[in-house]
Write a protein that binds this DNA or RNA. Sequence first.
DNA 1: AAGTTGACCCCGA
DNA 2: TTCGGGGCCAACT
Length: 110
Amino acid sequence: MKNPPDFAEKVIDTIMQIPRGKVTTYGALAAFCGSPKSARYVGNLLKMSRYSSYNLPAHRVVNRHGMLTGQAFFDVEYPMKKRLEEEGVKIESNQVVNFAHLFWKPTEPL
DNA sequence: AAGTTGACCCCGA
DNA sequence: TTCGGGGCCAACT
């Protein structure tokens, strides 16, 4: 059997399950996939997905500090801040307000 | 082809 | 207290 990057696939699949109005972290996704130290690749996946046709809610993924690190990578007309606010998530100084309250823990897919 | 990086996180000095 | 380096996976140059 082929050995595709099930790690990346799992991460992407989990991101797709992020409920609206909630946010998660790179480390949480990475740890849930089995590699708590691969958090940096999780962020890379989001960037890769941007080139692909995947519609991943990357704006719902923030770093461990709840800061919108990838904001600059989004469209200037639709930044993460705006998208999150559209879902009811308040942003202040590129940080998610009540981050702990809006934090969504990755549940088991499938 | 190989090497380096990246929207990160954690630990040590 | 602040600063630096290591580790992980896969894609990009």
